Amino acid sequence: MKIKILAAIIALGALSSFSNYESVPTGYSGKEDIQASEGELIMKKQDCATCHKIDKKVIGPSFLDIAKKYPMNDKNINYLSDKIIKGGSGVWGTIPMAAHTALKKDDAKKIAKYILSLNK
């Protein structure tokens, strides 16, 4: 069963890698807007778009759903950046999120800030 789920994730990832990644303006100004833009650029270099889209669930939740669930604060930025680096499962369903252990903590925080900035 685990092999079937893994095969499905890989197949969906391969198919979704052909889709266009859409950018959504953040709506914040000042330093947070710069970091959000940095986070978006870092995220585009990762495999995030394989499992996540801005406004619809694919394998994982949409970025907008994540932003709605977690208000923008230091606690949530740290929590989500840890999830991005370490991966995990159980919060949004049974399919685990892959770990991104090569990602620097500061870059993961910028990604988390960008995602949380989508909640307007």
Rank of each mutant, 00 (worst) to 15 (best):
G93D: 00
K104H: 05
L64D: 08
K113S: 13
K68M: 14
E38Q: 06
K83D: 01
S19H: 08
C48S: 05
S62A: 15
A98M: 13
S117H: 04
A102L: 13
A98G: 12
Q46G: 08
K113L: 15
K75D: 01
V58E: 07
I34L: 11
K83W: 02
K2Q: 07
I5P: 08
K69E: 07
P25I: 06
K86A: 13
S16R: 12
G60T: 01
I85A: 06
W92N: 03
K105M: 10
T101C: 08
S19W: 08
C48T: 00
S117R: 02
T50K: 06
Y70Q: 06
Y28Q: 12
K56P: 09
F63W: 15
I115F: 03
K45D: 12
A11K: 08
I10L: 15
S29T: 11
K75E: 06
T94M: 11
I3N: 04
K56D: 15
M97N: 04
T101V: 15
E32T: 05
K44F: 13
L12H: 03
K104E: 03
L80A: 02
S29V: 06
M97I: 05
G30Y: 12
Y79H: 10
K83T: 01
I77N: 03
I111K: 03
D47K: 12
Q46T: 13
K45R: 14
L15R: 04
P61Q: 06
